[in-house]
Amino acid sequence: MYELIQVSENSYYIQSPAKIGLVRLNDTEVCLIDSGNDKDAGRKVRQILEANAWHLTAIYNTHSNADHIGGNKYLQGQTGCKIYAPGIECDFTRHPILEPSFLYGGYPCKDLRHKFLMAQASNSEYLTKEVLPNKFEIIPLPGHFFDMVGFRTPDNVVYLADCLSSRETLDKYQIGFIYDVGAYLTTLEKVKKLKARIFVPAHAEATEDIAPLAQYNIDKVKEIAENIAARCVEPLCFETLLQKLFTDYNLTMNFEQYVLIGSTVRSYLSWLRDSNEISAFFENNQLLWRRTAQ
């Protein structure tokens, strides 16, 4: 873990729970793509920098989930580097309480205010083309989170953040976190067509051909959507539906899984309703979901 792996002349990644991209800008300066999940990750990154006599100029965050920005504060404090994040992700990075609050739908209890869902705040600025290193490209990848992006480096390495998961992860957990299902599927269709020297997803192995894994993720999303719709043949309230899905997929409910899977299931319900696959109505002061006539 935290091994530095070179994938091209100037592009690397650091093997960690959420892969950290590292790009050499010249003989002495580097930038990071994300920073890992906590202060300890930041410390390990700093040790890699020092071992190679590299100076960190900037961290470019793909999005604001805690496992991607957790090392920001430590590394910024140690190196004085700039931090950039796209759109609303920048606001979440500045105010990390927004992540567990969004997931829970209110002020999060202490069971949700921990480093896995709430990083330490860092002084981030909005990501624009103007602040990127020369010949870097921003690749919009919405769906998993609000304004998530990936990056293409000058030596044609593409860092894909969380826009897809490994087969092993999907087979084990089935329901991966998604904020906007429609946008997520559109992103995956775009990713299928991308060409690069190598692709580096945050939660899957680096590969020269990303299309098969992208299709596997697409198929899994559609499978989950069909299962949710099928469960709603008889009207169900959200909590009952969530319980049935946890049972169907042999998942264990705790506070963290309740908000992560629960938020995702709500996103599926919104997508299915907007697609006229299910309807929503109120009865006996309950919001009920029901599959539309096929």
Rank of each mutant, 00 (worst) to 15 (best):
F151Y: 15
A161H: 08
N134I: 06
D171P: 04
Q120I: 04
P212I: 12
P212W: 06
E130A: 14
G150A: 07
P133T: 09
P212K: 09
F199S: 08
E168T: 10
F177A: 01
V131I: 14
H203Q: 12
C109W: 05
F177S: 01
D171S: 10
L98N: 13
S124V: 12
G182R: 10
A225Y: 06
K193E: 15
Y179Q: 13
T187F: 01
R231V: 01
A119C: 10
R197P: 00
Y173W: 12
A161E: 07
L160W: 01
K222G: 01
I178R: 07
T207C: 12
P133D: 09
L213R: 11
V191I: 14
Y216N: 07
S165E: 15
D180G: 06
Y179M: 13
T207G: 03
D171E: 15
V200T: 04
T169C: 02
V157K: 04
Y179S: 08
L185P: 02
C232P: 04
D155M: 11
T128K: 02
P133S: 09
D155R: 10
G105L: 06
D111V: 01
L127A: 08
K172M: 06
G143E: 03
K190V: 01
N123A: 11
H114N: 15
F102G: 00
E168Y: 03
F151D: 03
A161K: 04
V149L: 06
D147C: 04
K172V: 00
T169H: 05
K190N: 13
G105T: 08
D219Y: 00
G105Y: 01
K193M: 09
P142Y: 09
I138W: 02
G182L: 11
S166F: 01
L185W: 02
L127Y: 02
E205W: 00
I210D: 04
Y107E: 14
L127K: 03
I139V: 13
V157R: 06
E99Q: 11
S124E: 10
E137T: 12
E189K: 12
G106H: 07
D111S: 13
D180S: 13
I178N: 08
I218H: 02
A119N: 13
I138N: 06
K172C: 00
K115D: 11
P140F: 07
K172Q: 11
E168F: 00
S101H: 08
Y184L: 10
N123D: 15
S166R: 04
L194V: 07
L117W: 05
N123Q: 14
F151N: 09
L132V: 05
K135C: 04
Y126C: 05
